[in-house]
Design a protein around this nucleic acid. Structure first.
Length: 228
DNA sequence: GCGACAG
DNA sequence: ATCTTGTCGC
């Protein structure tokens, strides 16, 4: 699929924050977005060494699944290097270039992108899922494994139980239990979708495990690419 | 000022 | 993210 060329790449945290502020107005939120997507893509990255600075070898993978059967339709992997040091809040700049390369290798244009990390549940309301969504123009959501910003009450212990993730008095995401008695995930809208629809899609993608099938497939794909 | 901090 | 052994449970 076609992916827009990258904007000038920041070399300092300050420049990176400026890029986020520049792109944030391009976000389209509020509309439901894809409800029963025919194709859903999972994005994930695997690193070769520790995540300290720039230059670490990494593999970015995209796995496109049939939204109903959850069967794999297409896969794409790209190898590269970390394009920025790891800084909380600027995480996207680290793996975005390689992630976009992997998306370019796709023949299918997914109806929804599921990213590792966050969407608007972010200090400047512009996490990885927002960034990827704006640059591809596709609906995107973020599914994080640990908390980042905001406060919340522990959700009930059954699959489907959830509680709002609040930051600065606004709802930026939802803490969602995808399996009975298992640690919840943190869902937030990234681009061209809303929180309710994002959570509905996450539940549709988690029939057996805590994390979405899309994420699990992409994770395995990225690890394998780094090994082979 | 100090600690916390997606992957 | 990654480095790591065993262990409990379906």
């Amino acid at each position: 699929m076609e992916v827009r060329d990258l904007h000038a790449w920041p070399s300092t945290p300050r420049e990176a924050e400026a890029v986020q502020d520049l792109l944030r107005p391009m976000l389209e939120l509020g509309e439901p977005g894809p409800v029963r997507p025919r194709t859903v893509a999972g994005l994930d990255v695997a690193y070769a060494a520790d995540g300290g600075g720039t230059g670490t070898r990494l593999a970015a993978a995209v796995a496109v699944l049939d939204g109903t059967s959850l069967e794999v339709i297409e896969e794409s992997v790209a190898v590269g290097t970390a394009a920025f040091p790891y800084v909380p809040g600027l995480f996207a700049f680290r793996e975005l270039p390689t992630l976009l390369d992997a998306l370019r290798g796709l023949k299918t244009v997914p109806e929804l992108l599921v990213c590792d990390g966050f969407g608007v549940a972010h200090p400047r309301r512009f996490g990885l899922a927002c960034h990827v969504g704006v640059l591809t123009g596709l609906p995107a959501i973020g599914v994080g494994k640990t908390a980042f910003v905001g406060e919340y009450e522990e959700p009930g212990r059954r699959r489907g139980d959830a509680s709002p993730l609040l930051d600065g008095g606004e709802v930026v995401g939802r803490v969602l239990r995808t399996r009975d008695g298992v640690k919840p995930v943190y869902v937030s809208a990234g681009h061209r979708t809303d929180l309710d629809t994002a959570c509905r899609n996450v539940l549709d993608l988690t029939p057996s495990y805590r994390l979405p099938e899309t994420t699990r497939r992409a994770d395995r794909l990225a690890r394998d690419a780094l090994a082979g």
